[in-house]
Amino acid sequence: MFSRIQEDIANIIVRDPAARNKWEVITCYPGLHAIVMQRWAHWFWRNDLKWMGRFTSHIARWLTGIEIHPGAKIGRRVFIDHGFGVVIGETAEVGDDCTIYQGVTLGGTSLSKGTKRHPTLANGVIIGAGAQVLGAFTVGEGAKVGSNAVVVKEVPAGATAVGNPARIILKDNARDEAAARMFASYGVVPNGDDPLSKALHGLIDNAATQEHQIEKILASLKCAGIDCETLLTTEKFDQKEMNKLVE
Rank of each mutant, 00 (worst) to 15 (best):
K73T: 15
K73G: 07
G135Q: 12
G83A: 07
A122C: 12
K73F: 10
D96R: 01
P156S: 13
V152Q: 10
R117H: 05
G130P: 04
E154V: 07
R61T: 05
I74Q: 00
I88S: 01
D176C: 10
C98H: 02
H58Y: 12
F84V: 13
I59E: 06
G95L: 03
A129Q: 12
N164M: 14
V162R: 01
A180K: 06
K153T: 14
D172N: 15
G158N: 13
L134W: 01
G142L: 09
L121A: 10
W62Y: 11
G135T: 12
I68E: 03
L111W: 06
A159C: 14
G103N: 06
R117F: 05
A60L: 00
V87G: 03
A92K: 04
V139F: 04
G140Y: 07
R76P: 00
G146W: 00
D176N: 12
S112K: 15
H69L: 01
A60K: 02
G107Q: 07
H58T: 09
S147A: 15
V155Q: 05
G108Y: 07
Q132M: 13
V145P: 03
A184D: 05
Y101N: 05
G135S: 14
P165N: 08
M182G: 07
A149L: 04
A161Q: 08
V94F: 06
V150M: 10
E90A: 11
E177K: 14
S147N: 03
G71I: 04
G130Y: 01
Y101D: 03
C98A: 10
N148T: 05
A159S: 14
G89I: 07
N123D: 15
G158K: 12
K144L: 06
G124W: 03
A122D: 14
H118N: 11
Y101E: 05
I80S: 02
V86Q: 04
A180W: 03
V162P: 00
L63Y: 02
L106T: 02
A136R: 12
T138S: 13
T105Q: 01
V133I: 15
V133C: 08
G114H: 13
V87Y: 09
G103F: 04
T91K: 08
A174S: 15
V125Y: 03
T160G: 04
A174F: 10
T105A: 09
A179H: 13
R77P: 02
